[in-house]
Design a protein around this nucleic acid. Sequence first.
DNA 1: TATTTCAGTGTACAAGTGTTGACTGATTCG
DNA 2: CGAATCAGTCAACACTTGTACACTGAAATA
Lengths: 225, 225
Amino acid sequence: MNTRTSTVRAPTLRDERKQQTRQTLLDAALEVARRGGSLASISLREVAREAGVVPTAFYRHFRDMDELGLALVDDVCLRLRRIIREARTSAQGATDVAIQSSVRGFVGYVLDNARAFEFLTRERFGASRVVREAVAREIRYFSGELASDLRAAAPFSSMPGEDVAMIADLVVHTVLNLTADLLDLGEGQPVREHEITARAVKQLRLIFLGASQWRPERGAVPPPE
Amino acid sequence: MNTRTSTVRAPTLRDERKQQTRQTLLDAALEVARRGGSLASISLREVAREAGVVPTAFYRHFRDMDELGLALVDDVCLRLRRIIREARTSAQGATDVAIQSSVRGFVGYVLDNARAFEFLTRERFGASRVVREAVAREIRYFSGELASDLRAAAPFSSMPGEDVAMIADLVVHTVLNLTADLLDLGEGQPVREHEITARAVKQLRLIFLGASQWRPERGAVPPPE
DNA sequence: TATTTCAGTGTACAAGTGTTGACTGATTCG
DNA sequence: CGAATCAGTCAACACTTGTACACTGAAATA
């Protein structure tokens, strides 16, 4: 159950091997979930089978499928965070070409890591509440990162933080939407793929265009009644 | 299996009763799916049990759970279409107050029909491909309806159809996103509820603001390479 | 080296699953 | 009315599932 190497000792050979089959289980789950459609529709035994391990060995790593799902979200998002972080340093700005090249880069990454993104897209609204919350948390994290990037430049630097967050949220969800469309398309349709991507690029341009005209003081939304 | 009343005859008493238990099955599925998290995680037998009917009776109405899911999408969306259609005739326009009151009306409707929207939100990215496609079709329908509404007024009347569709798509997905957030929140959190709604209202304002400044001719997105 | 730890195995079981086929009895129809 | 239809029942099946428990043997520890 406990996966950390004990507080201070160096990771022993056993620890390494355990970590290794843990990763095998995670990969197996990702693959089985892809074929089966979602975490909710697959069984502990299927995952163990795919991982080439006896069902009961599963319990050495996770209490149940929910815990596996949580670990999977962490695992997938950790890799994703690294990629995003390094991509952030390069292409900056909200010009049309910057948007376009950012989106293109992202689309490529999504297609290269289709299994991972398919998992996140599904489980974002999946059956398990805890997994859903974990995905939501990660999305909020990305949104926050984007918001802090945006704040570095006009017109966002002079905007209330709340409004920047609201725009970052809109951008992130537009990209997530693109991601979902892309993945549902399957790999062999370059024309539709470009249409969908082009549409998303336009949507982002529209959003940034709106942002450049945004008047915060007019933005208050009174509570009902 | 075949549910239509035969081509020309009036619906007989038997037909009516069949239709009735069919509806009971649909309602049961909606309820069980709500508790269980999604279609993929529930069983035919659970649905039958909830409907107060023997498992094998299920087959008199649907070949399998996928077919049930499809019927459920149709059923739920039919009711939704009617509501939207009549709401369309009243609040028109894209002014701040129009947006606000439209969103408020919609939020109320979502909360009143939480089970139905929860189902659609989940199954939109659920395990079953056919159900997913059915939901996508419905969303495209709503997007199309909105686009044709928008075209009636400036600045959309002078825009290429493609661009209007792209904006309608953005609006619909922003609303869907609001819906998902709202439903995940649960019913007892009026403060967060208002925050989320207010954010969505702002996002829509931003979108319409962008639309008012949109220059179609600058919008072309070239293919890669 | 002798002892302990523990990741992975093997067996077993009760509970739930989808689907089959034969049935029953009210409703439909000639 | 009498025969045919057919929505819903009942019993049975071959499987899969999650999990408990005792185990093995290599690696870790003392």
